[in-house]
Computed example of a mutant assay.
Amino acid sequence: MRILHTSDWHIGRSFHGHSTLDALRGVLATLTEQVRSHEVDVVIVAGDVFDSATPAAGCYTLLSDTLAALRDTGARIVVTSGNHDSAARLGFQSALLRDGIHVITDPRTVGTPITIDDEYGPVHLYGIPYLEPSLVRHLWGGIELRSQAQTMDHAMSLIRSDLAGRTGRSVAIAHCFAAGVEPTPHLERDIQQGGLDVVPLSIFEGVDYVALGHIHGQQRLSDSVRYAGAPLHYSFGERDRARGSWLVDLDAAGLGSVEWLDLPVPRPLDVIRGTLDELLHDPRFDGAVDAWVAAQYTDATPQTDPMRKLQARFPHCATVAHMPDHVQAEDGLTYAGRVRNARTPVELFDAFLAHVRNGEGASDAERELIADVVQERVAAEASA
């Protein structure tokens, strides 16, 4: 059996205020063609189909069109809900879909597989919707479920118990933060990285393949436990992570092979750094003109209207940050310390400017101007 493992479509998410629906539609069309050309039997979508619990109408249209196109290839589809999805809304959508498309949102179905046969016999696909411990513990009375690890452990115990009475191969589909994920600059925005929310890999033992969702970058935790990541880049921290899905082959004995299939990147992401003048004119940044851009300008002081200026060269500039190259804090004093040491109003202003300018105090011209203003103020108060 050939399985395509994808996840975290996040239909409806914006990228720094820009809609991603058209870009995602194109990427999912490519994914559908990969399913057709590779003769995929089952497509797994491991959670976070939508980006919010209240998707706009266009999000439902994109999902329905994509699932219908995938089904037209002859593949079966298994979708589970993630922490961003409204299980109720996604579950309602399932009633409108045709045969061969399975949407799993009800925690009470954990341990009940979708079974599909191939030439080697049955393959049991166990979908685990996102399980928030506080919301599902009442379903399994007498069992302590206070963490993701405990809750996922219980879900997998239900799966192993069901498997004990069956023959054939098995796949688990889950949406969680598993132990061993490689650190990245920008992990999925809702992950809590405390020990209570980390699911040990040992919990997933007993099945042939585990298709995970929740992390937006491709991750291989073991041969049989993997994250596919999101099909689009949803943050600049993800820019160096490939976009795509896992092509999983199950043979007669279980897991046969796993291959990565790249997806196109509709618009690359680039982080550029330099003085504002360099960013606006230096030819070395020509390659970023058509990219999504996160600009970091290193001038000692904040510049006027940098976003408008940068967008004249980089139409898709999404963020601008003032990040000076150096800090001139040679005295080692805190801001409060500099204020205490100030003996004149000019020195007090200089301490403030050094604080807000990342160590760059007043220039000679600014000191003269400040001194003139202070003198005028003193004279005005004396004559009042």
Rank of each mutant, 00 (worst) to 15 (best):
T167Q: 08
R146H: 14
H186G: 09
R160L: 05
R169Y: 03
D162L: 07
L131T: 01
I159R: 02
H124W: 07
P185D: 11
P183C: 07
P133G: 10
H124Q: 08
P122K: 05
M152E: 12
S161K: 11
R166I: 00
D162K: 01
T151W: 12
W140R: 11
G141H: 00
I173Y: 05
A149P: 03
V181G: 03
A178R: 09
T184P: 08
P133F: 12
R137F: 05
T151C: 13
A178K: 06
P129A: 12
Q148D: 13
E132F: 06
P122Q: 10
D153M: 03
M156R: 06
R169M: 04
P183I: 07
S134F: 03
W140N: 14
H138A: 09
G127W: 07
V181F: 13
C176W: 14
G168L: 12
L158Q: 12
R146S: 14
A178D: 09
I128M: 13
H124T: 07
G127D: 12
G168C: 10
I191D: 11
R137C: 10
H124D: 00
P183Q: 01
G165C: 02
L145V: 04
W140S: 15
G168F: 07
E182W: 01
I128G: 03
R169F: 03
I191H: 06
A172C: 05
C176N: 07
A174G: 04
L163G: 06
H154E: 13
G168S: 11
L158D: 06
V136P: 01
S157D: 15
T151A: 10
S134L: 02
Q150T: 01
R137L: 02
T167W: 08
L145C: 05
V136D: 10
G165S: 08
A149Q: 09
R166K: 15
C176D: 03
V136H: 09
S147T: 15
G180Y: 07
H175C: 10
H154L: 09
S170Q: 07
V136I: 12
G168P: 03
R137I: 09
S147N: 11
L158V: 02
Q150I: 00
V181I: 15
Y130P: 00
V136N: 00
E188C: 11
D153V: 02
T167F: 07
M156Q: 01
H124E: 06
P129I: 12
T151H: 09
H186T: 12
G142N: 10
E132S: 13
P183D: 14
I173A: 05
S161A: 13
P122F: 05
S134A: 15
E182P: 04
V171T: 04
R160I: 02
H175F: 08
G180H: 09
R146P: 03
I173T: 05
A172K: 00
A174W: 06
W140G: 09
R166G: 01
R169W: 02
H175S: 10
Q148V: 00
A164N: 11
S170C: 08
Y126S: 02
A179R: 15
E144I: 07
L187K: 10
R137Y: 05
R189K: 14
I159C: 11
